[in-house]
Write a protein that binds this DNA or RNA. Sequence first.
DNA 1: TCGCTGTGCGCAAAGCTTTTCTTTTGCAGA
DNA 2: TCTGCAAAAGAAAAGCTTTGCGCACAGCGA
Lengths: 339, 339
Amino acid sequence: MTETDRRPTTGRVTLAEVAGMAGVSVGTASKALNGSGRMRPETRQRVLDAARRLDFQPNEAARSLLGGRTWTVGLITTDGIGRFSTPVLLGAEDALGAGKISVLLCDTRGDAIRERHYVETLLARRVDGIIVTGRRTDPREPLNGLRGVPTVYALTPSTDSSDMSVASDDEGGARLAVEYLIGAGRRRIAHITGPAHHAAARHRARLTEDLIGQASVELSGGRVHFGDWSEAWGRRAAHTVLRTAPDTDAFFCGNDQIARGAADTLREEGHRVPEDIAVIGYDNWDTMALASRPPLTTVDMNLPEIGRIAALRLLNAIDGRAVSGVETVPCRLVIRDSA
Amino acid sequence: MTETDRRPTTGRVTLAEVAGMAGVSVGTASKALNGSGRMRPETRQRVLDAARRLDFQPNEAARSLLGGRTWTVGLITTDGIGRFSTPVLLGAEDALGAGKISVLLCDTRGDAIRERHYVETLLARRVDGIIVTGRRTDPREPLNGLRGVPTVYALTPSTDSSDMSVASDDEGGARLAVEYLIGAGRRRIAHITGPAHHAAARHRARLTEDLIGQASVELSGGRVHFGDWSEAWGRRAAHTVLRTAPDTDAFFCGNDQIARGAADTLREEGHRVPEDIAVIGYDNWDTMALASRPPLTTVDMNLPEIGRIAALRLLNAIDGRAVSGVETVPCRLVIRDSA
DNA sequence: TCGCTGTGCGCAAAGCTTTTCTTTTGCAGA
DNA sequence: TCTGCAAAAGAAAAGCTTTGCGCACAGCGA
């Protein structure tokens, strides 16, 4: 207790105290701890021992004041850390944490005012870089007023092609699903997906139509069924498709919820999945995909990988090796029992 | 570009530059910007203008070096930011952000080594406080080696009662559900829940048994059905209950997934929900509760509120007004169509 | 006109670490 | 024993902001 009283304002051990205990100057102590400089091994050891005895940890504030780097990056997410941005965030944090970089979390809840505020805060804290992520794959306006702080957009790319973005390969994902279905001999494929104003839905739909056009396969119902991302829509749409095109033998769905709804309807209307009709989902949202009957074959966007690559690009940019443009990360097909 | 070259290592505008432009000393500039000190209004204005022109933001590192406070708190989560810790985290971030405090995110993935590493990092960064949260409501060992940094445990309380913890009122939540069912005239209630080694399951089960014992109501099947937190278990258990106790008129389920599974089985076996049999879930996980047929009446743990209160207690502790012990946050019943 | 009061602003130290430069110490060779 | 060099360790500055203290000057009363 007396000990704590002697301590400076931060309430923590300072290098001067370590140096004092070891009987050397602060400069020498610093060198000893950082392995730089030259000194007698026993001196270094004395400092090391003192540091351990006092449980010394260098003050990062002082360090970054000097070095100009804070070893901190800001992570701005626009969707309350939802199902999509969370895995991205985790992947990023993983890649950064390994390099001793900490993550400042900022959730804007999609509010521009909040976003502005957070950017100011991050800039004031002199973060080394910023990662921006969101809920959707639609491109977004870039952050402004960044004053040269390296920034990478993950999952949600920037509309400015001179920015760095890492996105999911939507078309590749759709290709995986459709080619798998065609390869399995399916010939009448329905595509049920989310709202047409979502880029993800549009891109996957376009590629689905293209691929089906190339193979001698029929797009069941003659058109893509846009709706919303819910199970209810999946159930409704599946019901409609079965009525208008009873010979449909496969459903490619825009996400796992739609797929699950479709699977439920198929089962309830007496069709066997996958024997009679195959179902493929998208997202590989495990709680959904595994709880579905049968468990869903689905496309995984490799979200943690997107976060990881974004973090890597950011680290490169911080080191002055920035690369602009959108890099897409391939998806993979997770095969379970529904197709 | 010439301009940037003149700048110091951090690459950002410094107070000295602002002072230079305004023709005052750095001390005066600081006072002008902080509203402290006394000076001619026009002088203050000149500084303010210069700061805006240069887009000056004080260097937080220098600031905290001086003040001993970093205006940063660490948030340690043990479960990859899952469904439970995320809302808690958001609530906390909300309460802290309003007070100009930033959040350093640390995900330990349940690994003790990682946790140790993160604690070290946070301490080195001189965070003002730490919030610890997890996936389950089972108490956990407290962090050690904190050296007096204020810490609050949210959702997952600490086993040390001298720590500060904010937890969900598990028994109150169970009471809400059971009393609602009894009040609605249900007389044979089944309780299907997760594994008995989870505190949440045990606590709710005990209270359910107690309440049922007090009212002249029967615990359907004579015992609580422990299993796991999945839909599959909900389906299986519901099937069993219906066979062994066909006169069951209500299911209280340990989470929304179990409830949904139970509701599916009930429907498929020809029972109407809620007319014949009521179902109540737990967690109010919207994707689950809303997609269920019918949408689930369920207990909401008010997770963001838990995060908010944890943040408030932490802020108090940082200001020297620490309160030890576990504070429980009440649940609320969200009434939809299943009961 | 002198001295006092008070306002306005500058000076300098504190806060902690890293790094460069300088000084001291120790040893070897002459 | 003295000189010189290398190795070891210390001194000091830089990095940026805040704040207490003190100085200078203006204005006013005597």
